[in-house]
Design a binder for these strands. Sequence first.
RNA 1: CGGGGCGUAGCUCAGCUUGGCAGAGCGCUCGGUUUGGGACCGAGAGGCCGCCGGUUCAAGUCCGGCCGCCCCGACCA
Length: 578
Amino acid sequence: MRLSRSFGKTLREAPAEAELISHQLLLRGDFIRPAGAGIYTFMPFGYRVIRKIWDIMAEEMDAISGQEMWMPNLHPAALWQATGRWNQVDVLYKLKASGNREYALSATHEEIVVDLSLRDIESYRDLPRMIYHISKKFRDEPRPRGGLIRLREFIMKDAYTLDRSEEALDEYYPSMLQAYTNIFDRCGVPTVMINADVGAMGGKSSQEFTVPHPQGEDEFIYCEDCGYAANVEAAGFVREGEKPATMDELSKVLTPDCKTIADVAAFIGVPTTQTLKCVFYWWRPNYVEKPGEGRMVFAMTRGDLNINDTKLVNAVGGGFIRQATEEEVRSIGAVPGYASAIGMTPAKDMESPGVMIVADESINYGGNYVVGANDDPYHYTGANYGRDFQVSRIADIAQAATGHKCPNCGGRIEAKRAIEVGHCFKLGTRYSKAVNATYLDEDGQERLIYMGSYGIGLDRLMAVVVELHHDKDGIIWPDSVAPYQVHLVHIGKDGDGTKEKAEAVYAELTAVGVEVLYDDRDGLGAGVKFKDADLMGIPWRVTVSGRSLEQGGAEVKRRSESERQIVSLDQLVATFRS
RNA sequence: CGGGGCGUAGCUCAGCUUGGCAGAGCGCUCGGUUUGGGACCGAGAGGCCGCCGGUUCAAGUCCGGCCGCCCCGACCA
């Protein structure tokens, strides 16, 4: 490609809104152009990078018996209603067409796949199958951010497995994880695989591929000693502390201006581990909140810990939660800032009357707690679980944090930020059951298809490649995903004969299949061309100039290194033909 | 949705406090000089100052509303 004919241009300065380095460099190099919050055009060079990543993914998927196809992005509402996700997936874009027809934009494609399986999977002979496609996903993200990191419209490779049983999937699953590792490695992005929460996808278990990054939006727990790694939404930890030998008497004390755990612990003179933290949520079964639907959930941990919302949702069996309003808190007899379970009747389950009180396991690792008295401004001291208050259930609902004890080896864990680039889900029968997608086994028995789904965001991965491969001058694309292999630079004056030599080099390299971007622009100084080449980050730079010709050929330089060497023109082709 | 910031030329930004001709650098066009790290000289083009309303003789500037963008949080298959 000749730069003199290329659509788009580089920028000397990045637009002010770009904060992440990948965002800045991709904008400056004109790989992407914003169209709105979380919506981008991929410019010619950016699209070439996407195609390179696309090809790598297709190769790895094909290698494990995958078949590429192309699925629709306009989904009839009926498909999403059939799986029950029409009102459950909060980021779903819904639209109305003429008449009463309703559609969803493709937030993901489980609905399409499970619908396909209805007709195409009839017998155990039709299993297992793995299909995948690369296409657009649309999600109404509340806050797009970080350039290509979080988008409203993005490009995703998603694969789907259909199996006879959990065992059959278990057998295949490691090859998928390996393929994922291969993909990321080939793109120059080493990942950490962590256990994660399945969230709204449903299913049994999931593995997330993440790249540790200070500005990542995922938080995960890592143990240096044993390698334990899990998303904070799923990470366990060992609760430490002991029950006191004797229970103190429950007594009510005046605690003015003590609305936080830190305040009250300091005022009374106890560590925060000797307090209980109470947080109130409103729970409802669907994302779309209907008046009168749902109930209060009273969550409790020891005062030194925090509630993890995802763990809490799992502890009550799914659904959605939001922070309760002050009126809702008061409706169950609790006083904000001075709340506790003392005097409350716990509900047996989510259908029963009373207050649904979910306590973290940590309340069993301490006692003689300071708790609210449900009376402003009083607290109780000497409160003990069992004697002074009851709960509906005890569960793991506290968030693991740096310094906690590893659930695997007992070492100390650390919380880190990371960018999620891929996610594998063992879905099980979550979707097949919803639409009764079955097959007949050898015994003529009808059985539910066992599903898995596996996604990678291509644009996000592209951003992460840049996060990991750049210097002060610009991007340094790994060879595998670079938009071109060679950036050919011509420097010279009209009539000095250098242009003809550069043209010849361009023609020869292109003829043998080398992808060449040729800076044939006239009238630009060497500085401008070199700055552009550094910014765009193509792995090899080949310069043809009066100086290089005097030295015997073209100057060849690797983007990632500073050495330059002269290669004679007749050996150039041999150098780059691989 | 809560908190903060921003919106003036293609990009980066000044001008707003204290109302009075719409500005600079880069980029772009033309001419010339340069030609190995964003070079120089000269001449130009380019604006609904985010939108709507209000105050005023006069609004980019003051007031109200709305929209958009960025960051933190909430949320996030």
